[in-house]
Every structure is written in C-alpha cells, then in structure tokens.
Write a protein that binds this DNA or RNA. Structure first.
Lengths: 158, 158
DNA sequence: TCTCTATTTGCAATTTTATTCATATAAAAA
DNA sequence: TTTTTATATGAATAAAATTGCAAATAGAGA
C-alpha cells in the first residue's frame, strides 16, 4: 500500500482531464503512470471517491467527479449587432437546475419580466440584477425546453 | 412502446425517493408499478436520463439524478469577533454548483460586489440580498478554488 | 390505406464492475 | 519488540450493466 492518497489524487486528475470510458481504460492509464494496482482496487477507489459513470453526448460513458455530474454548459451564440429591437440577451449558461442569462447592462430586469411571463411552466421564477438573470428551472424541465421557450421572444437565441 | 415518457418520469421519481442499489431492484419496483420492461431497457433508460450510481455512506450504492450527485454540504467556520475590519462574512456552504454565503445584515451587497470583481474566473455571477449571497460556480471550478480565491480578500475564511 | 423510416424493446451474450476470501502491509498497543 | 488491530490489495468469482441483433411498434408521407 505504497501510495494510495497519491493514486486517488491522480485518479481525480485523470478523470477531470480526459474521457475515460471504463475501469480497464483508466487502469491502463494509471499503470502507465507507474501505479501498480488491479481493477479490483480501482473499483474500490472509484467507490471511495464517489466518482460516477455518466452517459456522454456521444453515446458512450465517462467518469466524472460527483460535483460535476450535473454541470454541462451549453454555450449559446448571442445575436448580431446592436441595431434593431434587441432584448439585450447575450448568453445563457446552465448549471444544474439553474440558468444564468447575461444581458447588456440594464436589460436584465426587462428581459426577466418577459421570461417570467413566458416561461411560467418551465421555471419557478427569476431574479435579475443589472446585467444578470438567475433562472430557477422547474423540476423535470430540460435545458432544451428552456431554450425552445426562449426562442419565442428572443430571436436568434440559438 | 406504450409509455416511455411516463416510465422515465417514474424512474426519476423512484430514485429521488428511495434508495435503489441496482438495476434489478429498480426493475422490480417499476414492474410492481405496472411497467413492463426488462433490465436491458432500464439500462438504456438510466443512460438516457444520465442517472448515476454513487456510493452511499453505508457502503453500498444508490442511483441519483446527476444534479444531485454533488450535493454534499461543507460547513465552514466563520471567523471570530466583530472587531476590526470586517467583510461581514459569516459562512459559506456549497450545494452542487452553488454556494451560499451568509453575511452580517447589510453586508451581502458589498461583499457580492467584491466577489464579482475577484472571482470572475470562478463564478458565473452572484446575486445578493441583505445577508445572503448566492454564488453560481463556473463549470470545472472546485470548492477549494472558491475558498482559496475568497481568502485573498476575506481573511480568516478558513 | 400502404410503404418507408425511425424508435423502442427483448433476448442473449458480452463486457464491465463489485465483492469474497485470503494475504500482506502498516499502525497501534502492550 | 511482540502482539493485536485495522487497512489495503490481488486473484478469482459473482453480480451488475451494456450492447448487438432482430423483431415489434409508431409515425410520416405518398
């Protein structure tokens, strides 16, 4: 049992860095880095670290740290120039059951008002500052549903 | 394929409610509720829902929704007396990709302002009330990074 | 309606992951 | 040091999860 702590740390680093599809694959990486262990030990390590295996967008699986399991950022392009009727919308990012919308300064309140009126079914509500809106998603509502609903009054959101 | 959507919803409900240690066990519950499916389909459902299996404190495993995988509160000690130059900071707790900072009454706005200026890389943004600040963590940022960054202008945070 | 396509599912086999049991190593106590 | 206790590990095995393939079902379009 020469260096368990070191090994656990390395495991966290590796899975944070690269896509690893299974224990055998991760095992190989660790062995390449000089650690001597078997799949059995790795299974125990992953259990101890509470690392989870989660489906990827590409149809496979990967390991992630528990706190990252619910975080998948969707970066949206903000729409064109300043001309025309702008909603002030700049971007939306998701984190867990939350979304943060960035707007041009001063637009957050107005946009949040519209969102409140249009996304009743999708959100619990919004809180707006000057250029930031926090959106609390309703349980069971997907990110796609949110952006889809936003499209109805934010053109070019996608 | 009578009712996949319904089934998926039920799966989420079940795993949110009870501890389920494996697919066979969850399968049984679903079948008891009248769903007809096999373990293979359940495996695909869990993949689609991005449900993860995570170690429990009791030594077993359970399924959780991805956004709940990282919910483990870290209680921080607040620093000493009221004397001296106080930032008003009392405590910080994490839950998933969120942090809630408690401050002495009236300090939240000022401290949030400082956080916005200092933790650009670490957060999506903050929203402050009177004595509470909500912090939305950026993807890939650890809790340690947050507290580390806060230390630079909140003495004794740890 | 009929045809074509995409989706869903079960079965069976495979692959992957977890655990049992024994052993070894380390740490603590005497 | 010697004994006791706890922790860590591997080999083999058991258990659990995933997938290829074919069949069934649903939906779209002619």
């Amino acid at each position: 049992m020469k260096n368990k702590g070191n090994r656990l740390q390395t495991i966290k680093e590796v899975i944070s860095t690269v896509r690893v599809g299974g224990q055998e694959e991760l095992l190989k990486i660790l062995q390449d880095r000089g650690f001597e262990l078997t799949q059995a030990t790795l299974s125990r390590d992953l259990k101890q670290l509470q690392i989870v295996k989660i489906a990827t967008a590409e149809g496979g699986y990967t390991y992630v740290l528990p706190e990252r399991a619910g975080v998948q950022t969707i970066q949206r392009k903000h729409h064109g120039a300043f001309g025309g009727m702008s909603t002030g919308f700049i971007s939306i990012e998701f984190s867990g059951q939350l979304a943060v919308i960035k707007t041009r300064p001063g637009y957050a309140g107005g946009l949040a008002y519209d969102i409140d009126n249009h996304l009743h079914k999708e959100t619990l509500g919004t809180i707006a500052g000057d250029d930031t809106i926090l959106l609390v998603l309703r349980e069971g509502v997907s990110r796609e549903e949110i952006t889809e609903a936003l499209k109805t009054f934010i053109p070019n959101i996608k």
